[in-house]
Design a protein around this nucleic acid. Structure first.
Ligand SMILES: [Mn+2]
Ligand SMILES: [Mn+2]
Ligand SMILES: [Zn+2]
Ligand SMILES: [Zn+2]
Lengths: 133, 133
DNA sequence: CCGATATCAAGAATAATTCTAAATCCATTT
DNA sequence: AAATGGATTTAGAATTATTCTTGATATCGG
């Protein structure tokens, strides 16, 4: 376990939360993390999971992702990306811009506007897998 | 008051909520609506405001807009648009795509993906008004 | 080891929203 | 017009994700 990541002191709990997010990149909720992490940290509390996720988020190590009023989800992908929620499977997928596309270029904003944060969420259906028929 | 809008039967309460959203297009929360509407409907309950907003949303008459975990806001603008939250003033502004731009064209999605819903939210700072100095 | 500081854990508190149940409204039928 | 039945409204309770409080524990520098 590293002593720190991006200036955030690592503790056993923070490290295990971080590892879990890196290993299972399916955008779990705090409660999902709490349930999954019990194997490794049987005594961790849900409040601590929230604390760890907040600390990781505040230091830019993970991203908090919100879909409407649903519980927040967490994502360790640092690239600029949006999220596609597939209604068929319930899964959430990272979505990038096509190469060369810049969000500020396609939006009609007053010149001089500073964008500090962007969130793009999509819902819909991915095409049926070509393997399943 | 029309008998119905988009198939939703109008009641006094729904109509006043709808009018308020059309007249003050600053993306109020349910509680904002509750406070503002008391002039016209002194006996309306907050639950009814929520009921009305839900009915109007379910019928596509208004849109529910979410910023992170903040209270939902409501918007009567039917154009496809995103929302820019100006940190300086706290105000929320509708943002459109530049003419001819289609979101599906700039995102890297598997061919055949069906997008049913898009939400774009931005935070940042609008340029200082040229009038104020 | 010592004292200072940070973190953790358990449970209480918060706050937006939804639910429940009873009253009221309202369109339609007698 | 009166009766009926379903929709709507209301007040308050309930829900639930999240945050807060507080005391216990761990960690750091010296
Ligand atoms: Mn989940
Ligand atoms: Mn407000
Ligand atoms: Zn992601
Ligand atoms: Zn809007």
């Amino acid at each position: 376990m590293p002593a720190e990541i991006s200036g955030l002191r690592m503790t056993r709990q923070r490290w295990e939360v971080y590892r879990l997010l890196m290993e299972q990149r399916d955008h779990p909720t705090a409660n999902d993390v709490f349930i999954r992490i019990k194997d490794r940290l049987p005594n961790i509390s849900l409040a601590t999971v929230y604390n760890c996720l907040e600390a990781l988020t505040a230091h830019g190590i993970v991203r908090q992702v919100n879909f409407d009023r649903e519980p927040s989800r967490f994502c360790p992908n640092h690239e600029e990306h949006g999220h596609f929620h597939d209604r068929r499977s319930g899964t959430i997928h990272d979505v990038s811009f096509k190469p060369g596309i810049n969000l500020a270029d396609v939006l009609d904003l007053p010149p001089g506007t500073v964008i500090t944060n962007v969130e793009i969420t999509l819902r819909g259906e991915l095409p049926a897998s070509p393997i399943a028929h």
